[in-house]
Simulated assay, not measured.
Amino acid sequence: MENGCTIVDAMNTYNIALRIILSKGYKIFLIPDKREEYFGDFCAVKGNRKFIGGDPLRVLGLVSIWENTGDDWQNSHFPKEDVYDEILSRALPDSVEDFDKLTEKGFTNLVADYRLLFEEVLEKEFPLNPTRQEMFHLIDSFYKEE
């Protein structure tokens, strides 16, 4: 049986991210910043390619984007839908009508996705067969919790 793994964006992941970037043949630099509260950006350089981010995880993410898409990353083979907006819309619905607009398959997928989040990630109970109204209240209250 597989144990599973959880990795969280935190400083204890910075060194492994930097080691991965170095193992790919990049040189890494810190570019200072004039703001007192911000010491600068990390920059990975190899050949004529530069990847700059506020921390090593962001730089590794940018390297990964380039490795998967190439120099023409903005015109990559990945579908062009706005996944970022879709995730935010699902997480922050305006009303139950947002869920009423979903097809039966779309709603079933939404329930399955949030079941995964609640049961596997958050280790919280999730209703067996929630209605659209119950899903709206569950998600709306979940994202408003402090």
Score class of each variant (00 low, 15 high):
1 M>V: 14
1 M>K: 12
2 E>G: 15
3 N>M: 10
3 N>R: 12
8 V>R: 15
9 D>T: 14
11 M>I: 14
12 N>W: 04
15 N>E: 15
16 I>Q: 09
17 A>C: 06
17 A>D: 04
19 R>H: 09
25 G>R: 04
26 Y>G: 01
27 K>W: 00
28 I>R: 02
29 F>W: 07
31 I>G: 00
31 I>S: 08
32 P>S: 07
32 P>A: 03
33 D>T: 02
33 D>W: 04
35 R>Y: 05
37 E>P: 00
38 Y>G: 01
40 G>Y: 06
41 D>E: 08
41 D>G: 00
41 D>Y: 11
43 C>H: 10
44 A>S: 04
46 K>H: 08
50 K>V: 15
51 F>Y: 06
51 F>W: 06
51 F>A: 02
55 D>P: 01
57 L>V: 03
59 V>W: 02
60 L>V: 05
61 G>A: 06
62 L>Y: 09
64 S>K: 12
66 W>C: 09
66 W>M: 05
66 W>G: 02
67 E>A: 10
67 E>S: 12
67 E>I: 09
68 N>E: 14
72 D>E: 15
72 D>N: 15
74 Q>T: 12
74 Q>R: 15
75 N>Q: 10
76 S>N: 14
77 H>S: 14
78 F>R: 08
78 F>W: 13
78 F>N: 05
82 D>R: 09
84 Y>D: 13
84 Y>M: 09
86 E>A: 12
87 I>L: 14
89 S>C: 01
89 S>L: 02
90 R>C: 11
91 A>P: 01
91 A>L: 09
93 P>I: 02
94 D>M: 03
94 D>P: 00
96 V>I: 07
96 V>W: 05
98 D>A: 07
98 D>L: 01
98 D>C: 05
101 K>I: 00
101 K>V: 00
103 T>R: 01
104 E>I: 06
104 E>W: 03
104 E>H: 05
105 K>L: 12
107 F>K: 01
108 T>N: 10
111 V>K: 02
113 D>W: 03
113 D>K: 07
117 L>E: 07
120 E>K: 13
121 V>R: 06
121 V>Y: 08
123 E>M: 11
123 E>G: 01
124 K>A: 08
125 E>I: 00
127 P>R: 05
127 P>S: 05
128 L>W: 00
129 N>G: 00
131 T>F: 06
132 R>L: 02
132 R>M: 04
134 E>F: 04
134 E>R: 06
135 M>W: 04
135 M>D: 03
136 F>R: 07
140 D>E: 15
141 S>M: 13
141 S>R: 14
142 F>S: 11
143 Y>K: 15
144 K>D: 14
145 E>S: 14
145 E>D: 10
